[in-house]
Nucleic acid binder design. Structure first.
Lengths: 339, 339
DNA sequence: AGATTGAGTTGAATCGTCTCAACCAACCCT
DNA sequence: AGGGTTGGTTGAGACGATTCAACTCAATCT
């Protein structure tokens, strides 16, 4: 490895290391002729500044970590892209880490990021209560919770999932459905619990006229949605719900697939609503109704908060930003139960 | 920021910094009692080792960069997951960067990664010829090309895209299609060019009996696929192709959507084959036939090659690994044109 | 002439960790 | 008793860039 350092550059350009450093960081204060000589030396040697050493000295990195629950869910990819677009403008790098819903993996990623002394961390935590995260913040790494509730100890951005559930439920009830299923994931995941509570509230508002079934799965994947769908499709028509509200679009897509493979029509035999409104929702077998979240905005806002905290640690006050979801109605729930 | 360093730990534990370092790196050589004292001090102070300083001294990072063409394409996410699973076993971190098909962004990411002195870089380059990449490698950062052709100067892993195109073409021809459209992207992208050449070869083998139309788009997105689909659907039935082979699944999904919204039946009026076989392909409006690539394997192999090069830079010989794609037939191409 | 100013440049100290030769104490062997 | 061995521990350099007080040398002012 032929990595050149600042000293070699200095030698070749016949200046001191201090001057080379100045050329790199404050070119305007060094005499044009000298500056030129240094640039030439840099070019001739193929010198690339060692960001590691720089960072050690300066004490502040230009990298932020983004730890998401599931990279294979396009929702999180969009959040990441939002964050990255802002980071780009502050020549900051976003490193994307995947906890895959596993607290162990999440913990390892956080360890790594803290050891790297990143500028800050954006995270969609696996678990609601996380003393580990608080210690991390206390030790001096700013943390912003993404799509997660406020703890008061950190900044956070989130979307009102309870409201999202409520909207979806109200929509289905209004369409005449009286037997609705919530196709959920582990209730330990806050998003799932809130969306469930939301539709529960909508059902309660119907004063007993509507029945709410609930299924819980270990993961929120397409495969899991399909599995639940298979079971539901196998039920006799009388016991089967007439509508399903899925905890996210991936599950909804799987669920939809199962309906199709059992010859059940959507929305006539089964209405379906998903959550997140990922790009694939509109491209599904039957275009999927879905509760839309402002995905990129979520990411952009999160990193804005982080950058603000880093820039002014003293006067920074932790804030909670909450966005509103809205329902996108497509064919999968277009038709009423009783027209 | 109350970041503790090794010296403070040493003081509290009443040992030298060397001993603390030993506890951290080779615990077995320090006396159990001392070790205990050091661990206690670490815990009490909330000490977290500064990986930046460590790296500066040791000169070798445990991070590899993975620069992909498009994070919003699940294909690349799967490649990344493959790479990460191997990296995990070597406690190495993968940082995922998105060039989004833009040479400028790609270049900036590469600069950043080199400055960070990453252990190596896995990349799906935007452009086929890239002197920049070669200089990078020459300066000492190992590079493995992913899903990209061999240059001889680096290791590479790829899938035979030409063969993939050929298989898809042969399948459609065998099903009786005589007017086929290649729904492609910019021909400057190697994958696109190869897949096009592949289906071209299949058509040529039919000795003039089959006509091949070609559309090119600036990007390979769902939206672009839909746009092309709209145009195609608007054609009079006589001029319209009876089958489409799309450069990737995202385009195929968009194309499929356009067919549906114009009341054209798939596969009766239009057969469709996609490429990559992402998970969403099977969940599409009409389950999508697709040329499958070993996505995770691609990522795993790439990082294996990189780790090998890093472990034994001397005896390492650059290698090109090529995998074979295969066709997954689903409903979107299930029916023959002339049964 | 001597003092003052300002633009450029220098080099030593610093960041936090690792490495390695040197050292120490205790034990064993003859 | 003296020499060798073993198991632990120490502390002084690196690593590569940044910073800043000190310095040089002309040009300008009094």
């Amino acid at each position: 490895m032929a990595t050149r350092n600042i000293k070699e550059v200095a030698q070749l350009a016949r200046v001191s290391v201090g001057t080379v450093s100045n050329v790199l960081n404050r070119p305007e204060i060094v005499a044009p002729a000298t500056r030129e000589r240094v640039f030439e030396a840099i070019k001739k040697l193929g010198f690339v500044r060692n960001e590691v050493a720089r960072h050690l000295r300066v004490g502040r990195s230009r990298t932020v970590g983004l730890v998401v629950l599931d990279v294979s869910n396009p929702f999180f990819v969009d959040v990441a892209q939002g964050a990255e677009s802002v980071a780009d403008d502050h020549d900051t790098m976003v490193v994307l880490c995947n906890s895959a819903g596993d607290p162990g993996r999440e913990r390892r990623h956080l360890d790594q990021l803290e050891q790297q002394r990143v500028m800050g961390i954006l995270i969609t935590p696996v678990e609601m209560e996380s003393p580990w995260l608080e210690e991390l913040a206390a030790r001096g790494t700013p943390v912003v919770l993404v799509d997660s509730p406020a703890t008061g100890l950190q900044c956070s951005v989130a979307v009102d999932d309870r409201l999202g559930g409520q909207i979806a439920g109200a929509h289905l009830i209004e369409r005449g459905h009286r037997r609705i299923m919530f196709v959920g994931g582990p209730p330990s995941i806050r998003q799932v619990a809130d969306r469930h509570a939301g539709i529960g509230a909508a059902v309660a508002a119907a004063a007993g006229a509507v029945e709410l079934l609930t299924s819980t799965s270990p993961t929120l994947t397409v495969a899991e949605g399909r599995a639940v769908g298979e079971r539901v499709a196998a039920l006799p028509a009388g016991e089967r719900p007439t509508a399903a509200f899925c905890a996210n679009d991936m599950m909804a897509l799987g669920f939809l697939q199962a309906m199709a493979s059992h010859g059940l029509r959507v929305p006539e035999d089964m209405a379906i609503i998903g959550y997140d409104d990922i790009d694939f929702a509109a491209a599904a077998a039957v275009p999927l109704s879905s509760v839309r979240q402002p995905r990129e905005l979520l990411g952009r806002t999160a990193i804005d908060l982080l950058l603000e905290e880093v820039a002014e640690p003293e006067e920074h006050r932790h804030r909670q930003v909450i966005f509103q979801p809205d329902l996108v109605v497509r064919k999968s729930s277009a038709q009423g139960r009783n027209p």
